[in-house]
Simulated scan of single mutants.
Amino acid sequence: MTATRPHETVLSVTYPSERRARVVADALGPEVGEIDDARSTATVDRDGSAVRVRVRADDLVALRAGVNSWSRLVAVAERVGTSADRT
C-alpha cells in the first residue's frame, strides 16, 4: 500500500491454462488507466495461469467502487476468453 492510496484489494483468479489467463489479462489491459479516477487506480498483471488485479484507493467507498468495476470487467474478459477457446 502507498501513503497516497492507503486502501488496497487484490483480485486474483487462476485459470485452467496460461493461454486463458493471457487472453483475460490482454482483454483487461486496455482498461488500466482508462477507468481510474481521482480516488482510485488499478493495475493488472499475469503470472502463469493467474491474473491479478490490484485496486488501490484513497477511501473505502472508492475501493468498493473500484473492486465492483474491475470484478465486472474480469467477468466480461472471461466471456471473451471462453469465446477465444471456441475458435
Rank of each mutant, 00 (worst) to 15 (best):
V13L: 05
E18T: 11
V24K: 10
E8S: 12
V67A: 09
R22A: 13
T43S: 15
S69G: 08
A25P: 09
I35T: 08
S83Y: 08
D47P: 00
T2P: 00
V23G: 12
E34L: 15
G29H: 13
P6C: 01
D59R: 12
A38S: 03
G66Y: 10
D36E: 14
T82M: 03
D26V: 06
R52P: 14
T4E: 01
D45N: 10
V67W: 08
L63P: 01
R20I: 04
W70Y: 03
R72Y: 02
T87S: 04
G81W: 03
R52L: 13
R86D: 00
R79N: 07
D47V: 03
T14L: 04
E31R: 07
R86S: 03
V80I: 09
A42S: 12
R19W: 12
D36N: 15
T14W: 05
R86A: 02
G66E: 05
V74C: 02
V10H: 12
V67P: 04
D85A: 04
P30D: 15
L11M: 07
G48M: 09
A42C: 10
E18I: 10
L63D: 06
R22H: 14
D85G: 02
A25D: 09
V51C: 13
E18P: 09
R22D: 14
P6N: 03
D58R: 11
V67S: 04
R72A: 07
I35A: 05
V10T: 14
G66P: 05
T4V: 01
E31S: 10
S69D: 11
R39H: 08
V74M: 07
R22Y: 09
R5T: 04
S49P: 05
P30E: 14
E31T: 06
G81T: 04
S12Y: 00
V74D: 00
A57K: 07
V80E: 02
S69R: 12
T41V: 09
R86T: 01
S17I: 04
V13W: 05
P16M: 02
D45M: 11
G81N: 03
V67R: 06
L28T: 14
V74Q: 03
E31L: 12
G81R: 02
G81E: 05
R22Q: 13
H7Q: 04
R54L: 11
T14F: 08
G29A: 15
R19D: 08
V53Q: 01
D37P: 03
A21E: 06
P6W: 04
Y15E: 00
G81P: 09
D85I: 00
E34D: 13
R79H: 02
P6Q: 01
P16S: 13
Y15V: 00
P16R: 11
L63N: 06
V10F: 06
H7F: 12
L60R: 09
V61E: 02
S40D: 06
A75T: 15
Y15P: 02
G29F: 11
L11Y: 02
T9G: 03
V55I: 13
L73V: 06
R22F: 10
D37R: 15
V61A: 07
G33P: 13
R72E: 01
V51K: 09
R52C: 12
E8C: 07
V53T: 11
V61W: 02
N68R: 02
G29P: 06
T4I: 00
R52K: 13
S40V: 11
A21R: 06
A38N: 05
R39N: 08
P30A: 15
L11W: 07
D47S: 08
N68D: 01
V67E: 12
E18M: 09
G29C: 14
W70Q: 08
